[in-house]
Every structure is written in structure tokens, then in C-alpha cells.
Design a protein around this nucleic acid. Structure first.
Lengths: 204, 204
DNA sequence: GTCTATAGTTAGATAGAC
DNA sequence: GTCTATCTAACTATAGAC
């Protein structure tokens, strides 16, 4: 890992623990093991470090979407495929994968916290946080459930209602268990329990 | 409103918009209309202002609990009374009241944001945020649903599962619509819709 | 690409006049 | 209780030697 990437990595860690304003360039440089003045050979300002992290988050989300089959081009098709053999275990597995991505991914777990802290101070972060973690997630779930209903795998309830019901507890648990690796098993147990109940009620 | 209270009020507003670290004593004093040095006649430090706000939050939550009949002494009894004549409209009304308290209460809407921002930097705020907005809320809902089930007003599903399912979408919507007064009607419409679906599925 | 040194600014906080 | 003046410390950022 080169110095530039190490700066970004340490900055993200410190930002997620102390906030952006609460983290000085000296703190970041110190964590990397260089002097604060040296850091300016890699980034022209603290702001540029933060902006680079936000840009990297967009990349990482794109990768994750592909990994989970949530990309724009393939989302519909994969969802349809998924519908073809929906079982409780598969649903639990998909939810666990998404959940653990946000909870444990080296980058995302820290970024989730930074986004939470900085959303009110940065319109760009507010947009990312609300669009990505709320609107788009709900939109994706709505689309998925809509197709599942069409395929006869879920009861015919308004998919938008199902989406909020389903995504809200994932969001709540992510917010609750972020930064608490010791309670991961508890988090997954609660998650599974809620998915099971959802399946029990809405599976056709 | 005396100067001391005006300082607290302006500080909370600025904290909720810029974060605690992002708000200087000069900013607060300026908003009140005095010099920063004068502010120190009322509070001995910026930290003391913040701590006072946290203390006030505890008071306000106590008042709210009493207003909504969620206090420790009366919670059980009121919940039982409430069970006695449960209707969809009453459930919607109770949820709306709680929801609007957090969304629109002069103090709480701003404090919600501050708590969100400062939770990782202040163990005390982390505790308040997670205990009050998560654990205790879930515990209250669990107790309420437990009694409703005993009274035969809800289907006999594990009340802890119902509590997470029910509270999670309230929490999600609070986080989503905080600071967006223009979209209040939309927020309430979504809220009602989710409550209706919950009632439809679980009402005995 | 790292260092030392330093400029320029702003922060939190105090002293003392009125 | 408010002001002006001031202190000290910390912060962002730059210049220039190696």
C-alpha cells in the first residue's frame, strides 16, 4: 500500500472515530508515520482527502452492486432469476450478504459512520447518504418485490409497503450494530428472525 | 427568554447544522448577539454548553414519556388500558404523536441530528442515542405488544419480533425526514400506510 | 518524498474596564 | 453582564533544504 492510499485509509479511520472537523492533518500524518507537511505532497488540502474518500465510496458501491447483482443493467434479470427459486434460506443468505457488506466491509463500515456524521455539514454527503442508503435501497427492494409478486412468489401486497417494511429493519440493525463487532452474532440472529417472519407472512 | 437559555437555543441550532466541532463559541455568541467573551459569564466552557444541552434532553424525554404515557410507573397500566379499546385509528394516532414529537419538537428534532453526529465522539451521547432511540424504544414496544397479545388484540407472534418490525420503520422514517419540514405530509402518509399494513397483518 | 521552519488564521478562554 | 484587549494553543498550508 503506497503512502497516498495509506493516508486515505488512516484518514477514513480517524474521520469515522472523531469526525472530519475533529481530525487534524497532523493526526492523519501521525497515523501514517510522516510529518503533516509531507502529507501536502500527496494531497493539496484536507478537503481533497475527504473528497477522494467520497469518490472512492462511489466506486466501492458500484463494485458491491455488481457483486450482489444490483446493477442497473442486470438488476431486473437477476431479480427475476432469483424469483425462480425463492426459498427462505436463499432470502436469508442474500440479506446476510448485503448486511455484512455494510457492517464489515473495510471501507463501508467506516464510511457509514462518516456519512452519518457529515451529512448535515456536507450537501454532497447528505445526498449520498439519503439517496444510496435510503431512496435507492427502497427503490431496489420495491422493484425486487414487485417482480416476486408478478412471479407468484410473494403475496400481492403493494411492493412499496413491503420494501419499507423489509429494508427498515435492515437499516435499523445496521445503524445499531455498526462498530460493534463483538455483537455480530446477535445482530445476525435478530436479522434472520426478522427475515423469517417477513417470509412467513408474505411468502405466497 | 433569558440570555443563558438563548445561548443554549442558538448553540443547539448551530450544533445541529454544523456539528459541535464545526461551531465556534464566536458563532454561538454572534447568533445570540453578544461577544464571545461575554458568553463565558454564563458558561465556563463550550463543553459546559454541550453538557447542559444533553442534560436538557434527558429532561425533555422524561416530559415526553409522561405526555405519551410511557413512564415507568404508568407504562404498563396505560398500555393495558389502551389495549382495551385498540382500533386502527387509535394506533395511527399514537404513532403519529410519537413520530411528530421527534420530527417537529423544537428541541428533539435538533437534538436527534446532534446525537447522530456526536455519537461516535462522545460515549455519553452514544449511550443516549442507542439506549433511548434504540434499546428502550424496542423494549417499550415489546412490552406493549406483549400485553396486547395477552389481551387478545394482536396475533400471538413473538412480541420482540413485532417490536423490531414496528419500530424499525418509524426509526427509518424519522432519520429520513428529519430536517425536511416540506415533506412532512409525505412522511405521515408513508407512516400511516406502514401502520395500516402492520395492523392488517397482526390484528387479531 | 521527507524533513524543519514558519506564516497566517482561528480557536477556546481570561483579565479588567465600565 | 457586556465590552475591548489579549493570551495561548492548535490548525491549515507553504517554502525551501536535503
Amino acid at each position: 500500500m503506497n503512502t497516498k492510499d495509506r493516508i486515505l485509509d488512516e484518514a477514513l479511520t480517524l474521520f469515522s472515530l472523531q469526525g472530519v472537523k475533529g481530525t487534524s492533518v497532523k493526526d492523519i500524518a501521525g497515523a501514517v508515520g510522516i510529518k503533516d507537511s509531507s502529507l501536502y505532497k500527496h494531497f493539496k488540502s484536507k478537503r481533497e482527502i475527504f473528497d477522494t474518500i467520497v469518490a472512492k465510496m462511489h466506486e466501492r458501491i458500484g463494485e458491491m452492486s455488481n457483486e450482489l447483482g444490483m446493477s442497473d443493467e442486470e438488476g431486473g434479470r437477476l431479480a427475476a432469476d432469483f424469483c425462480g427459486h425463492l426459498s427462505l434460506d436463499e432470502l436469508k443468505k442474500l440479506v446476510r450478504k448485503t448486511f455484512l457488506f455494510y457492517l464489515e466491509d473495510d471501507f463501508m463500515a467506516r464510511f457509514w459512520r462518516v456519512a452519518n456524521m457529515e451529512q448535515y455539514r456536507s450537501p454532497e454527503v447528505y445526498d449520498v447518504y439519503h439517496r444510496l442508503f435510503m431512496e435507492e435501497s427502497i427503490a431496489y427492494q420495491t422493484k425486487l418485490f414487485s417482480e416476486m409478486i408478478e412471479g407468484g412468489y410473494l403475496k400481492a401486497i403493494d411492493p412499496a409497503i413491503l420494501a419499507v417494511d423489509f429494508y427498515a429493519f435492515i437499516f435499523f440493525l445496521l445503524d445499531k450494530y455498526n462498530g460493534r463487532p463483538d455483537e455480530k452474532d446477535e445482530a445476525l440472529a435478530v436479522l434472520d428472525r426478522q427475515v423469517e417472519e417477513f417470509y412467513r407472512v408474505y411468502h405466497a
